Computed example of a mutant assay.
Amino acid sequence: MTNSNPTVWLTLQASDAPALIDYYVDTFGFVVAARYGEGNTVDHAQLNWPEGRGGIMLGSHRPGNTWSRQPGTAGGYVVTTDPDALYERVTQRKADIVRPLAKTDYGAREFAVRDPEGNLWSFGDYTGELAAG
């Protein structure tokens, strides 16, 4: 039986998790599915990508924890069926475009953005290749 829930999640830590959540919702269009914590501390948040079965989990940076990573050092790729419309959305919101929308050598239409904490995001219509065999 195939599980229809995502099985791979990008996980992030943020210096200002509430602001980063707001940025991802407003600029990219992620949808908040869950958020736990009080005040400016986010213990755990789940943001779903509205076009598919994936998303991100993030929380406030907690140096010294066993699962601690430096904020602003992640990168992710998000598949979108309409990179042109999403590109228009992020440029209207004055996102930090690091690679403008263009066709790649492998036939995808993609662009890249740096979020306010420094993470790099690529958005495009490349859905990956089928596994060999």
Rank of each mutant, 00 (worst) to 15 (best):
V98S: 10
S122M: 07
W9R: 08
R69I: 15
T91M: 04
Y24Q: 03
G118H: 13
W121K: 00
T41I: 13
A33D: 15
L86R: 03
L86W: 00
D115R: 06
A17L: 02
N48K: 14
T80E: 07
R93L: 04
R53E: 15
A14D: 05
L10A: 12
Q92R: 14
G54H: 11
A17R: 02
A14H: 05
R89C: 09
D84S: 15
P6F: 08
S15M: 09
N48R: 15
Y77H: 06
A19T: 04
Y77R: 02
D84L: 12
V31G: 00
G59R: 12
G52K: 10
G55H: 10
D43A: 09
L101S: 05
S68G: 15
G39K: 11
P71A: 11
A34Y: 06
S4K: 13
N3Q: 08
E129T: 06
A108P: 01
P18L: 01
Y126C: 02
R99K: 12
G52L: 08
E51L: 10
A74N: 15
D96R: 06
N40G: 14
V78N: 01
L12T: 06
R53H: 12
G52I: 09
D96Y: 00
A33L: 03
Q13I: 11
E110T: 12
K103S: 08
P18S: 04
D43Q: 10
A74C: 15
D96N: 11
R62D: 14
A85F: 07
D125W: 11
W67P: 02
G118K: 13
G118R: 14
P63N: 12
V42P: 00
T7Y: 06
T73H: 13
R62H: 14
A45S: 11
F111V: 01
K94E: 13
L10P: 03
N119S: 11
I56F: 13
G128W: 04
T11R: 06
Q92W: 01
D105A: 09
V90F: 08
L12G: 03
L130C: 00
S60W: 11
D16E: 08
H61F: 15
Y77W: 04
D26W: 01
P18C: 05
W121C: 01
L47V: 09
N119C: 09
R69Q: 15
N119F: 10
N40Y: 00
Q70Y: 13
